[in-house]
Every structure is written in C-alpha cells, then in structure tokens.
Design a protein around this nucleic acid. Structure first.
Length: 886
DNA sequence: GCACTCACG
DNA sequence: ACGTACGTGAGTGCG
C-alpha cells in the first residue's frame, strides 16, 4: 500500500528556525533551521515509512491571491537573513538525501499540496500532510491525515476528519469558513474584526458557512449583527484567500515522489557538509560517498513489558545477570525528598517493571541486593538522583557505570533539554514521550495507570540502551572518555555520598541569630517609614522607587526595563544625598540574611538527620562547575561580617570533631599562567608572590613599596577582568572610571603580560574556527554565537571563549582533587568526611585524632591534583565550626 | 512565570 | 556605534 508524505517546506523551516537555538557550523553559517527540519524529516521517515515523499516550497513573490487582495501576507516581517540563507542549504540537503521537492511559480506550497491530496483522494491513496499551519486542516479526508507540528518541531498531532470534529465540531471544509470569520494576522487576512475563534465557532455551529452567516444576519442581533453586516465582503474575501487552490497545473507524476530510503551514496556527504555529525552517526552513514550501512528506518520497538508482582520477582531474579539497563522513576525536584514510583529493568530480550511497593517487599530482596552491589555495572539516566531517592527509602544503590545524562552534559553542557525524551529526539532514537506528557506537570502530576506507566518505563530503558553506544562513540571521537569514566562518573558517586552525609546545622543558634536580625530589621523599618513620612512595602523595588525618586526627588542613576533601578550600586551613589539611603542599604542586607539564610536554611534542616543535605548538580553549569540546591551551600555569606556569622551554625556532626576547610589560592590566575604560558605571570606564581601587588608593580612600573592600596585594588580588578574576558566597559564599571582610562589600563596590562594577550587572541580565533573551546581535561563548550553579526552576541561569545577554559580547568582540577581525596580517605581508612565543595574550597569534618594528618593530606592532594607549569597552592584551616575554619 | 535584587566563587 | 564584566540559586513582588 502506497503511503505519501507531503511536507509544507516553508512552514516547517520557519518553525524550526524559531524553535532551535542558533546553531552554526564551523564557518559561521547558521544551520539551525535545516537541522530542525532534518531531525523532523528523519523522524517522520522512521515512524511512517513512506513509499513517496515530497517537500513543497512557495515560489515567487506574487501569487494568484494577490490579484484578489494586494495586501495578502502584507505587513509580514521580512524573512530574517539568518533564515533565508538556509533555504539553499535545505534544498541541497534534500537532494542529497533523495527526497523530492516541488515549487511552481505563482503558487504557494499549500496549493501544491492541496492539488496532490485531491488527486490522491480521487485515486484512494493514503496521504499525510505535514505542516504547522491550521489552514491545512481543510485538506483532511478519509484518505488524508494532517500531521500538525507543534511546540517548534518536536511534537506532532494527527488530524483526520474525526479529530477535527472532536476539536472544533466542524468538517474539514468549514475550516476555511472559520478563517473567513476569524481572519489571520500572520497572513494579513482581515476576517471580521472582533470575531475570534470562540465567536466564529459559535456562528458556524449555528449557520454552517460564511455565506449563510452573512445572508441571514436578520437572525443576529446587537453589535454582532452590525459587525457582520459591515464586514460581510471582508469575510467572503477572507474565506476565498484561505481556500487552498487544488487545481495547480502539475507536470510531475507520482513516480517523481517515490522514496525508497535515504540515498546511501549522497546522504552522508550532504549531512557532513552541514556538520550534522550526530545525524550521520545515528543513521550509520558513511561520509566518504561510498555506501555505508543501509540507512534503514528503525522500527519503533515493540514493547512487551512484564509487570512484576511479589510472585513474579523470582523470574526477575533469574534474569538479573542479563540486565543491561535500569531506570528508577522518581517524582519531586529535590531528590532527598523524592517519591520513588518504581524500577524498570531491561535485558536484551525483555523489560520488567517493578512498582515501588513490590520493590520494598520481602520477596524483592534479591533485586535490592543486585541494586546495592557495586561490582555490578549499571547504566541509566541520572543515576545520581536515583541513588539519593532510593537512599532515603532505605534502598542502597551502587555500581553506576554509564550515566547517559552525564554523557549528554559532557557532549554539550549548554543543551537546555537534557531530559531523556529530549535526548532520544536529539539523537534520533525511537520516539519517547516526554515525562510531562505522561505524568502531567506541577499540581497536575499524576501517575498514570500501570500499563501505560510500565510501557513508558520500558521505553526509557530502551532509549538508554540505544543512547549508550552512540554517546560512547561521540565521547571517544572528542577524546572525552577519560573525563567521563575517570572523573565525572566517579565524582557523581562521591557527590551522592557527601549529600547523604549532609552537614550539621545548629538550629538553636540559627534561630537566635534570626531573633537578633529581626530586632534590627524592625528598628530600621520604623526609622525608614518615619523619614519617608509613609509606610510602604520596602521589599518592592517599585514602591521604593516611588519614594526615592518621586517623593524625595533623588536623582535617577539607572533605569531598569520596568522602572527605576534601586540596586545596591545605585543606592551607594545616592547615599550622600539623603540619610534614608544608608538605612535602606542596611535593611536590604539584613532582610536578605533573614529570609534567605535564616528562614531558608531552617526550612531545609532534615527532621530525620538534623542536618542540611544539599544537592549538587553536575549537569548545569556550562563551564563544568557544580551547582548546589535545596539549599544552595555555595553562597553562604562571607564577605561582610554580619553575614559571615552565619557560618558559625555549620558544625561537626560528632562531638569533639572539627570543621576543616581548604581552598585553592588564586586557582584561576594560576590556570591562566599555565594555559597562556606567560613568563611574567608564571614567575609571579613560582615565587608565590601576592599576585595583585605584583600586577600593580608591573602595570604601574613601580617597586613593591610604592604600591598603595588604590593601585592594588585597580590591579585586582584588572586581574578579575582578565579572567572574565576583559572589556574596557566592564572594567570601567567595576572601577568607576571612564572607559578610556579602563582601556589604557588594559593596554598597559597587555604590554606587560604579552603571553596573556596572545592567549586571548588565539583562543578567540580558535573558537571562531572550531565553534567550541575546551579545558585542559578536554571538557567542551560550544559557542554558536562566536561568528554572529550581532555585536553583543558575538562579544559575549568572545568573552566566554576567554573565560571558559580558565573557569572550566579550575573546575576540572578541584573535581580531580575530590576524586583523589575520596580515594585517600578510603585507602587510609580515615573517618574524616568530605562534606562540601564551594568551587575552590573543600570542607571536611574531622575527628580530633585525624586533625594532624588531614592538615597535611588535604592541601597535599589539592595542590598535586594536576601538574601545571606553576605550582598550585592550597591553604587549610580548621575550627569548631565553618566560621572558625578561615 | 518573569523581573529585580543579592548571596557566593 | 553597539553596551556586559564569568558562573550560579533563592526570595520577593507583581501581573
């Protein structure tokens, strides 16, 4: 049986363009729309296995519709140049793939498609039309299905006459009547003003057609009657414009649309030209032009998952040795408090789903023993989260060997959709429903009936097993296997250990601190109200702005998108004008401490352990750093004394133990010295000099004794700027000087540190050439905007190119230190525990009798974690709480 | 759900 | 000329 797929080329490429991030290839050519189009095309081929396929494009500016209505599609935004440049790429690629394309002068893609569907209807052939344009629904028939593309190009809804009836209670013919009444802003079709979808549907359900509505206005009343009568002509014309013309003089025959699979000779090279490497791998194509493996469209695997009850466990236990992949479904953002829904296991042949209550049953002991066995390698998605969720249900997990979530992060740390479903679609695996679609979101979350649930779980397992070999290949090709297997995978287990351990918080002291803040806050609030002469919500920047800039007429320093800016920088500048400003600044400081740190932290103290258990996320930061949530323990105050006191409530969890903290000294500048190979910078660190003073000496050309505090402060700001990817504007902001002065500073700096200048030049050039930058340990970050024509986008990408190798290598190093530290603690059988990581600092709790050892061991391991051309320095301190360990 | 503000490295 | 310093998470107000 023939099966025809007709694609509305213009519509889909537009949608893909706006839905996809602005991906570019190495030469700076943007390819995102072509990529989005192609992934959708491949998915359609896999899922529907068409015998015929065709992509239709609009041709020519004027179509016959303009004869009726000059303004047709008027007022529409000009096609962005970034998109129009992709049309030729798409057309060339389609040629390479062996997919036919039609365009006929004076007609739009819909007309071509409409004509073919009419012919197919007459011949009784099955057709599927792919578009995101609702107009296409008018073509639906017994033989013609409309595949409506939604949410960019990631989802497809199928409409036949029945579905249209269900959704609109209309026949396909009536879709044009709907548009006749509603109009369409994007095509500049007027319709009847004031009539939207709701009204239009009501009218059509009553009258049946536009013609009937306008001829029977006597049956209407009031405003509605007036509007319809006044715009009757417009409605009729709009309907005509919306009607797809189905009599295009086509010369092509059905044979020209025949599709027997991707052209093996040319598909690979065509994709390679666009640098769609993941697609080539996924299709198993050769890029040399010689035929590779046949690009068979992969049938969606049939699923016959076994739902396991207590009596079925025995069978599962018999097959545990063959299990290749597991999935544990959890619910909740915070894995320390997540519900466990169930466990799915997959062998080469079959899948099992074990609901949570069954997993907890006595019979399931063999399965739990299997989960806990660190010698059994396990593969899955986000095993770190799974480990934590199971832990709090008293189920042990060990043996994580390949986590596809982590692998996906390394392959592209900026990918925003890192869900398994997203990965399945990105890598072109069998379609996997999004969790949101299966479970619902937020308050609507609901575990579906068990058949549906177990099938989804099994499909997740299948997605993981398909993903593993593909990712492994890509990691290998990028030289990232060691980073993955020797650093990130082991680290993920170590993080889980730290998180389960948690850090003890003295709740009583914290509450007492809260009472002190409370008293000061109340006093400040009263004073502020008195000076302002009115009470208002101090936490509302909008209301505060009114008071400061309208009532008190203070000068406006800076504006935000929505009004006056009242941030600390502005308030500092306003302080000399009015006494109230200092008080507001003090209030802000205390209110922050109170709400975020006192109240926020108290809420996070576990009723089970009396500790806080943060959750380190390993797949968030684009540079390779960790991030910390629930609570964030990487931003506990330290810079101001008032806030720093909070650190006193972080204490050892055992009597007599100490908190020991060690931090890297100037790790980022040391990394820069190494990467840039700058002689002066290296020399400074070899001699372990105060780097900011040394910078001041060199930049200002003075001796050590002549460096005053101001010079040192400036030099410090320049050093920060260098690490961030310097700009004169940024430095001028930071130092409160003019841009010119800042530019002069930077020039002077680069005069002295020429190696650093060379590094900045080279790294940006490299990024422009390769499209990515990398760290010492081969961690990558793609910079799609590095060749953008937009100054801001491009400049941002350039600064990122300078910063990421520095920040990222520093992240690599402390991660290495953590893995080595964990090993050292185990080997020496120490009782000390690693608790926290704060980017360049590690925090431990240490028993009395290990203090002497740890004081040496920790800085030793940290400073030896990676050998650079300059020494790494780690400084250690300890005390009875985190405050004392300074 | 976004804007603003502010805590950290 | 353009106008942001790099990387994060959390609390509050407001539509």
């Amino acid at each position: 049986m023939d099966k025809l797929i007709l694609i509305d080329g213009n519509n889909i490429i537009y949608r893909a363009f706006f839905a996809m991030p602005p991906l570019t290839n190495a030469s700076g050519q943007q390819t995102n729309a072509v990529y989005g189009f192609t992934t959708m095309l491949l998915r359609l081929i896999e899922e529907h296995k068409p015998t015929h396929m065709m992509v239709a494009f609009d041709a020519g500016k004027e179509t016959f519709r303009h004869a009726d209505f000059q303004e047709y599609k008027g007022g529409r935004q000009k096609t962005p140049p970034e998109l129009s440049g992709q049309f030729p790429l798409l057309k060339e690629l389609l040629k390479g793939l062996g997919v036919s394309q039609f365009e006929i002068g004076g007609y739009e893609a819909d007309d071509i498609i409409g004509t073919i569907t009419r012919q197919a209807d007459e011949a009784g052939r099955k057709v599927m039309v792919v578009s995101g344009d609702k107009d296409m629904l008018q073509l639906a028939s017994e033989h013609t299905t409309i595949a409506m593309v939604r949410k960019g190009v990631t989802e497809i809804e199928y409409y036949g006459p029945e579905q249209i009836k269900e959704r609109y209670n209309l026949t396909p013919d009536q879709i044009i009547d709907l548009k006749g009444l509603m109009g369409d802003a994007s095509d500049n079709i007027p319709g009847v003003p004031g009539v939207g979808e709701k009204t239009a549907l009501k009218l059509l359900h009553e009258f049946g057609s536009v013609e009937a509505v306008v001829s029977r206005t006597d049956e209407l009343k009031g405003k509605m009657k007036e509007k319809i009568e006044e715009h009757a002509d417009s409605a009729i014309l709009s309907k005509k414009l919306a009607t797809i013309f189905r009599e295009v003089p086509l010369e092509q025959s059905l044979d020209e649309m025949a599709f027997t699979g991707l052209n093996e000779e040319t598909a690979g090279p065509a994709l390679a030209k666009l640098e769609f490497k993941s697609l080539i791998e996924r299709l198993n194509l050769s890029t040399s032009g010689a035929a590779g493996d046949a690009a068979e469209s992969k049938p969606q695997a049939k699923i016959d998952v076994t739902l396991v009850d207590a009596t079925g466990i025995a069978e599962v236990a018999d097959h545990l040795a063959q299990v290749t992949v597991l999935h544990v479904e959890t619910h909740g953002d915070n894995p320390h408090h997540a519900d466990v829904i169930g466990l799915a296991l997959a062998t080469e042949e079959r899948q099992y789903f074990i609901p949570f209550d069954v997993l907890k049953s006595e019979e399931a002991e063999p399965v739990r023993a299997w989960l806990a066995d660190s010698e059994i390698p396990k593969r899955g998605y986000d095993l770190h989260r799974i480990d934590l969720a199971l832990h709090w249900q008293d189920i042990a997990f060990a043996g994580a060997a390949f986590d596809v979530h982590l692998a996906a992060y390394l392959l592209d740390p900026t990918e925003s959709n890192q869900t398994l479903s997203g990965l399945a679609s990105k890598y072109g695996l069998a379609y996997l429903q999004a969790d949101e679609d299966v479970f619902g979101k937020g308050a609507k979350y609901k575990v579906p009936e068990v058949e549906k649930l177990s099938e989804h779980m099994a499909r997740k397992c299948l997605a993981v097993s398909e993903l593993v070999p593909v990712q492994e290949k890509e990691l290998a090709a990028n030289g990232m296997l060691p980073l993955f297997h020797d650093l990130e995978m082991p680290l993920s287990r170590i993080l889980a250990d730290m998180e389960k351990q948690g850090i003890a918080v003295n709740a009583e002291d914290l509450k007492e601190l809260g009472r002190e803040f409370e008293g000061q806050i109340e006093k400040l609030v009263q004073e502020i109200y008195e000076i302002a002469g009115t009470e208002f919500n101090l936490n509302s920047p909008k209301q505060l702005g009114e008071i400061l800039f309208v009532k008190l007429e203070l000068p406006v320093i800076k504006k935000t998108k929505t009004g006056y800016s009242t941030d600390a920088e502005v308030l500092e500048k306003l302080a000399p004008y009015h006494d109230i400003v200092r008080l507001i600044l003090q209030y802000r400081t205390l209110a922050k401490l109170q709400s975020t740190y006192v109240e926020g932290l108290l809420k996070e103290i576990s009723s089970v352990t009396g500790k806080v258990h943060t959750y380190y996320r390993q797949t968030i930061a684009a540079t390779g750093r960790l991030s910390s949530q629930y609570p964030n323990l990487q931003n506990i105050p330290i810079r101001l004394e008032e806030g720093r006191k909070l650190r006193k409530v972080f204490v050892p969890s055992e009597p007599g133990w100490s908190i020991l903290a060690a931090d890297y000294s100037q790790i980022e500048l040391r990394v820069l010295a190494h990467i840039s190979d700058d002689e002066r910078l290296k020399e400074a660190f070899v001699h372990d000099m105060d780097i900011h003073t040394k910078t001041a000496m060199d930049v200002f050309g003075v001796g050590m004794d002549e460096v005053d505090s101001n010079m040192r402060r400036s030099a410090k700001a320049v050093n920060f700027g260098i690490v961030y990817g310097i700009s004169d504007y940024g430095l001028s902001q930071n130092l409160n000087i003019t841009r010119k002065e800042a530019a002069a500073f930077i020039d002077q700096y680069f005069e002295v540190f020429q190696g650093v200048r060379r590094y900045m030049d080279v790294i940006v050039k490299q990024a422009k050439q390769d499209g990515y930058v990398k760290t010492l340990l081969e961690r990558r970050r793609y910079l799609p905007e590095i060749n953008a024509s937009n100054f801001n986008l491009r400049s941002f990408a350039e600064r990122t190119a300078m910063n990421t190798p520095i920040q990222g290598t520093a992240a690599d190093i402390i991660k290495l230190a953590m893995v080595q530290m964990d090993k050292a603690l185990h080997e020496r059988q120490l009782k000390s525990r690693m608790l926290l990581q704060v980017h360049d600092e590690l925090v431990f709790e240490v028993p009395e009798d290990e203090l002497e050892v740890m004081k040496e061991l920790v800085p030793d391991v940290m400073s030896q974690a990676l050998k650079l051309s300059v020494p790494l320095k780690s400084e250690v301190s300890y005390g009875e709480n985190w405050y004392e360990a300074k």
